[in-house]
């Protein structure tokens, strides 16, 4: 428990920590769904005219990579540009859609608006109203790139605003934990989209089409410039994977995210470097070390897709242990009762 100079105890309610964490996670998730959709939109630009069947193989991978094929099949007839982007952007029945993510982020932010700055809250609130006021027809009519760009920009604005206005206390660290955990997970998914697209046509590997696809992946991670500074103009699959997984300096690489995650976790507990005081710290540290001693060759040999899935599982385990370590409150759903309880 921290104490400030005047001796006032600085406490953080478990529920508040949880809300800050989820607010941050969901904003990051919304941003990354926008990125994933963006990869595909970029690829669509470069592809030849696609038949209906081609559309399905073009769009279905991102439904797979975000997780819920069954739900998609229940809600839509067939996968095409309209249905998949609607599913991933506006569909409230899909808990992973951008609108659902932003809604959840806002509900979490609402519960901690006394802990975040007015600026952060107002931007979360604005973003929600902005997305809610749009629909899939409208964004396709006016150009979807602009729309997804705005989602990303708002997420960046939120990071900048919290950087510049939120107190650096324990709550702040939970915001960081949420962000980097989610970002690491999402970077695996963006890489995985490429895997799914690649799969049906192995003859394309190394071809022009393949290069275009890897370039799109880089762009979607905002890694295009950073990659070229290191590797020059040559876009090779193993280099792209190497960069997005191992870069020590690129803020969206998995390694980078894991380092930030571990550091924030240790600042929460006050634990020293290379030590751990709970399972979340231990697993995060172990994952980081494992990755440090893995080579790109090894990853490709063992299968990129399989490696990415393993990473996702490990990250999920960290999240679970985080909850065990810090969130000591019962989860209930008292919504009915709350409305009923009348004030005068």
């Amino acid at each position: 428990m921290g104490t400030n100079k005047k001796g006032k105890k600085m406490i953080l309610l478990s529920r508040v920590a949880d809300c800050l964490y989820w607010m941050s996670r969901y904003i990051e998730r919304a941003e990354n769904v926008a990125r994933i959709v963006d990869v595909n939109l970029q690829l669509l630009l470069d592809s030849e005219d696609l038949e209906d069947s081609g559309m399905a193989s073009h769009w279905m991978p991102i439904v797979k990579s975000t997780g819920d094929e069954a739900l998609f099949a229940r809600l839509y007839d067939k996968p095409d540009s309209g249905s998949v982007t609607d599913f991933l952007t506006f569909n409230r029945e899909n808990p992973g859609s951008i609108l659902s993510c932003i809604f959840t982020a806002r509900e979490n932010a609402r519960q901690v608006r006394d802990k975040i700055s007015t600026e952060v809250w107002e931007e979360v609130n604005r973003l929600y109203h902005f997305v809610r006021g749009q629909n899939i027809k409208r964004i396709w009519a006016s150009g979807p790139y602009e729309f997804y760009k705005q989602i990303k920009q708002s997420s960046h604005l939120l990071q900048g605003l919290s950087d510049a206005t939120v107190v650096r206390d324990e709550g702040w660290e939970f915001i960081q934990v949420g962000r980097y955990l989610e970002r690491a997970d999402q970077t695996t998914r963006i890489l995985d989209v490429k895997y799914h697209i690649l799969l049906p046509s192995p003859r394309d590997v190394g071809g022009a089409r393949d290069t275009l696809q890897w370039m799109a992946v880089l762009r979607s991670c905002s890694a295009f410039e950073a990659y070229h500074q290191i590797y020059g103009a040559d876009v090779q699959p193993w280099n792209v994977a190497d960069f997005l997984i191992f870069s020590e300096t690129f803020p969206r690489s998995i390694s980078f995210c894991l380092r930030q995650l571990s550091e924030s976790l240790r600042r929460i507990s006050g634990e020293r470097h290379r030590y751990f005081s709970n399972e979340a710290e231990r697993l995060a540290g172990k994952l980081q070390a494992d990755l440090n001693y893995t080579s790109t060759e090894e990853i490709f040999r063992r299968g990129l897709h399989e490696q990415l899935l393993e990473l996702q599982d490990s990250l999920a385990a960290v999240a679970l242990e985080l909850f065990e370590a810090y969130m000591f409150f019962p989860v209930v759903d008292p919504s009915k009762e709350e409305e009923e309880q009348g004030e005068k």
Partner: peptide
């Protein structure tokens, strides 16, 4: 507070 679903929740936080 009764929680976030209560109509006066904003006021409680405020």
């Amino acid at each position: 507070t009764p929680g976030v679903f209560n109509s006066a929740y904003f006021e409680h936080c405020f």
